[in-house]
Computed example of a mutant assay.
Amino acid sequence: MPTRQELYAAYELPDRSRSRVRMNFVESADGAATLEGRSGPLGGEGDRDLMQVLRAMADVVVVGAGTVRAEGYSSVDVAGADAGWRRTKGVEPQPAFAVVSRALNLEPDAPVFAEADRPPVVVTCAGAPTAARTALEAVAEVMVCGDGDTVDLGAMLAGFAERGWTQVLCEGGPHLFGTLLDGGLVDEVCLTIAPRFVGGSAGRIARGAPESDRRFALAHALTDDEGFVFLRYVTPSPVYAAMPSASRIV
Rank of each mutant, 00 (worst) to 15 (best):
Y11R: 06
Y73W: 10
A96K: 13
A96H: 12
A161W: 07
V121A: 12
S212Y: 07
V234Q: 11
K89H: 15
L169E: 08
P120N: 07
V144W: 13
V189H: 06
G208H: 04
R38M: 14
V99E: 08
S17L: 12
Y8L: 15
F25K: 01
Y233G: 06
S74P: 00
V91N: 03
T88E: 15
E6P: 01
L191G: 01
Q52H: 14
G172K: 11
N105V: 08
S19Y: 10
F197G: 01
G200C: 01
N24E: 00
L54W: 07
A217F: 10
Q167V: 08
A219R: 15
A138T: 13
P108D: 03
G154T: 13
I249T: 11
A140T: 01
C125G: 08
T134F: 05
G146K: 08
S245H: 12
H175Q: 07
T150F: 12
P120Q: 09
V142C: 07
F216A: 11
V99Q: 03
S245T: 11
Y11I: 06
S247I: 00
P236H: 04
Y11W: 15
E171P: 01
V234N: 07
A206Q: 02
R55Q: 09
T34I: 02
A246E: 10
E71Y: 04
G90R: 03
F113Y: 06
H220E: 06
E115I: 00
P95Y: 13
T134K: 14
W85R: 14
F25R: 00
G64P: 00
L185A: 12
A56R: 01
E36D: 15
P195K: 02
G200H: 11
V234T: 13
A10R: 13
G37Q: 03
D15L: 09
P244N: 07
